[in-house]
């Protein structure tokens, strides 16, 4: 055993914003992972809240499947408001 496991770090920059991935740290456990995240990624008031997640617990989609995962959404234009024609004289819609 020479190095600790890896944790992914997410920071909420301020109230109203979602947590955003900023990087990772090594730590022996969840509590110290939070401390390490604080001491590494919020030294300049970058955040008001932190998440750490064991890197091994992240399930990622496979880029090789990006075609089947994401391309089918491309032609579903009816999901977007710009697909619909509304006369200019009609307001607030």
């Amino acid at each position: 055993m020479s190095d600790w496991p890896l944790w992914e770090v997410f920071v909420r920059a301020k109230g109203g914003l979602a947590h955003r991935h900023v990087g990772s740290v090594h730590a022996p456990d969840a509590e110290l992972a939070l401390r390490h995240a604080r001491d590494t990624y919020t030294r300049r008031q970058e955040g008001v809240s932190l998440w750490v997640v064991a890197s091994a617990a992240i399930i990622a989609s496979d880029p090789d499947q990006s075609g089947e995962l994401f391309e089918p959404a491309a032609d579903k234009v009816y999901r977007h408001p710009t697909f619909y024609d509304i006369p200019d004289v009609v307001k607030h819609i």
Binding site: D3, H26, A27, R35, D39, T40, R43
Partner: peptide, 11 residues
Amino acid sequence: PSVEVDLSLAN
């Protein structure tokens, strides 16, 4: 003992 601890101690 680790880079992370180095940052903590400096703080």
